[in-house]
């Protein structure tokens, strides 16, 4: 067997998270094959190491959702995730991009709500890893001296938008508060709270009390994730602000919109840049005003 095949087969056996049948099936050419039990013991060590490393990495990346799911169940989820999402990144910090979707499709109770919390976790994690960027507040002077159609807005590094059927910030705060107030707050208490939120906000369509918009569809909540210094923050924003912020975070646009154009787009909506600007500066969400090229 070539070295290339040896390496592929051993890695397959490790990621399979199963013992001898997988070794045989994959024809892993491990020396001393007569001593199967020890080879299995060695393989098991690598499998356990992979699972431990993966669990540790995702517990860091998905800190809030991991704490709500609980250590044992979270580890089981990671194990299942390893089977369907091979690790193509060399940096554990980058692994887990699809973990929220995976949770959403999993058997875990309140999976839709937990998936959205996981998506928020991932956005915060990525935000905190984004390239550092100095803000340039002196550039605000351009607003008074240059035509708005020549200017654009730069938001702080790592800023991201999310939307959900759940008021994630309120839910997380409520659970954290309950945790502080009750001395023996358990995972069961968390699950009960999550189940209530899930029923209330639309995860469980069998319940009649879910929150609906005036049009009769499940209400959407909008969030901005940003990083004033090194620690990511998130906040719920109105739909109109979400639409405004999208202009400055669109990655597919070949040409950055000008402030003037964005305001034209928002003209029929109840948006005031006069109100938004000081708040964005105070929150350190706004990084700079720049001239369009």
């Amino acid at each position: 067997m070539t070295l290339n095949k040896q390496q592929s087969h051993l890695l397959s056996a490790i990621f399979s998270q199963q013992l001898s049948p997988e070794i045989d099936d994959n024809n892993v050419d491990i020396e001393n094959a007569s001593n199967d039990q020890l080879n299995q013991q060695g393989l098991q060590i690598y499998q356990q190491s992979l699972l431990a490393n993966a669990t540790r990495a995702l517990t860091i990346t998905f800190a809030t959702s991991a704490s709500l799911i609980g250590e044992v169940l979270f580890r089981d989820l990671v194990k299942e995730y390893l089977l369907c999402e091979l690790k193509s990144q060399y940096d554990w910090g980058e692994w887990g991009e699809n973990f929220a979707t995976f949770i959403s499709n999993s058997h875990v109770a309140n999976s839709k709500l937990l998936a959205d919390i996981a998506a928020l976790d991932f956005a915060c994690h990525q935000c905190e890893r984004a390239q550092n960027q100095d803000s340039d507040l002196t550039s605000m002077q351009l607003l008074s001296s240059v035509d708005a159609y020549q200017l654009s807005i730069v938001l702080c590094t790592g800023a991201t938008l999310l939307k959900s059927n759940f008021p994630l910030d309120e839910i997380i705060t409520e659970i954290q508060t309950a945790n502080k107030e009750k001395s023996n707050f358990s995972l069961l208490d968390i699950t009960k709270l999550l189940t209530n939120f899930n029923a209330k906000y639309g995860g469980d369509t069998t319940q009649g009390n879910r929150q609906l918009s005036a049009e009769g569809i499940a209400k959407e909540y909008y969030f901005i994730v940003w990083r004033p210094e090194f620690q990511a923050q998130y906040a719920q924003v109105e739909r109109v602000e979400y639409q405004w912020l999208r202009f400055w975070l669109m990655k597919t646009s070949s040409k950055t919109l000008s402030i003037g154009q964005a305001l034209d787009e928002m003209s029929s909506k109840n948006f005031s840049i006069i109100d938004w600007l000081p708040k964005a500066i105070e929150q350190q969400l706004l990084s700079a005003i720049k001239l369009r090229h």
Binding site: L3, N4, Q6, Q7, S8, L10, L11, S12, I14, F15, Y46, S49, L50, N53, A54, A57, L86, K87, S88, Q89, Y90, W92
Partner: peptide, 21 residues
């Protein structure tokens, strides 16, 4: 050690230090 290998035509990182002959 080795860490990179292909599984089903996808290049995968082991996240570990694996032995070589």
């Amino acid at each position: 050690c080795f860490s990179w290998a292909d599984i089903n035509s996808q290049t995968v990182h082991a996240g570990d230090l694996l032995p070589i002959p």
